[in-house]
Simulated assay, not measured.
Amino acid sequence: MKHNFKNLKVWQKAMDLTDLTYSYCGELPSTERYNLIDQINRCSCSIPSNIAEGSGKRTNIHTAEFLSTSLTSSFELETQLLICKRRQYGNIEKLESCLSLLEEVQKMIFAFREHVVNKPVNPI
C-alpha cells in the first residue's frame, strides 16, 4: 500500500464533507429524492472513495488520475449544491457550511495531486 488513506487529512476532510452533505440532504424536499438528493449523495461519496482508491495505485500518475476524478466529483457536487442554493432548498446555514468545506477539500485535493505529480520517482 502506497498510503494509508485513513491517515490522509484530505480523505478525513472529504469524509466530513460526506457526513455534512448527507445531513443537509435530509432536509431537502422529498420531490428531489431521485434527482438532486441521490446525485449529491453519490458525488459526496465519490470524493473520499477516489482518494482512497488512488492511494493504492502503483504509480504516481495513476494516483493523480484518481485524485483528478475526486476533484471532478467535487465540482459536480458544487454545482448541485449551487442549484439547491438557487432554488432555496434546505437549511441555508448547513448549505453554506457544505460549500465552505467543499472549497477547502477542493484545495486540499488539488495540492495533494500536485504533490503526487511532482514527486520524484524512486528507482527500484
Rank of each mutant, 00 (worst) to 15 (best):
H3Y: 15
H3P: 02
N4H: 13
F5G: 01
F5H: 15
K6N: 08
K6P: 01
N7E: 12
K9R: 15
V10H: 09
V10P: 12
V10N: 08
W11Q: 08
Q12M: 05
Q12Y: 08
K13R: 10
A14N: 10
M15Q: 13
M15E: 06
D16N: 13
L17S: 07
T18M: 07
D19C: 05
D19A: 05
D19S: 11
S23V: 05
C25T: 13
L28Y: 12
E32C: 03
E32R: 02
R33E: 13
Y34A: 06
Y34V: 03
N35F: 03
N35P: 02
N35W: 01
I37F: 06
D38A: 09
D38S: 15
D38P: 06
Q39Y: 02
Q39D: 05
I40R: 14
N41T: 09
S44G: 08
C45A: 11
I47M: 00
N50Y: 00
N50M: 00
G54W: 00
S55P: 09
G56K: 15
K57A: 02
K57Q: 10
R58L: 04
N60T: 06
N60G: 09
I61D: 02
T63I: 06
A64R: 14
E65H: 14
L67Y: 13
L67K: 04
S68K: 11
T69M: 10
L71N: 06
T72L: 06
T72G: 12
F75K: 15
F75V: 13
E76M: 07
E76D: 06
E76L: 07
L77E: 02
E78Y: 00
E78L: 01
Q80E: 07
L81G: 01
L82W: 03
K85V: 03
R86W: 04
R87L: 14
N91T: 07
E93P: 05
E93L: 09
L95S: 13
S97Q: 15
L101F: 05
L101C: 10
E103T: 12
V105N: 00
A111M: 07
R113M: 14
H115L: 09
H115Y: 14
V116C: 07
V116Y: 08
V116R: 14
V117M: 12
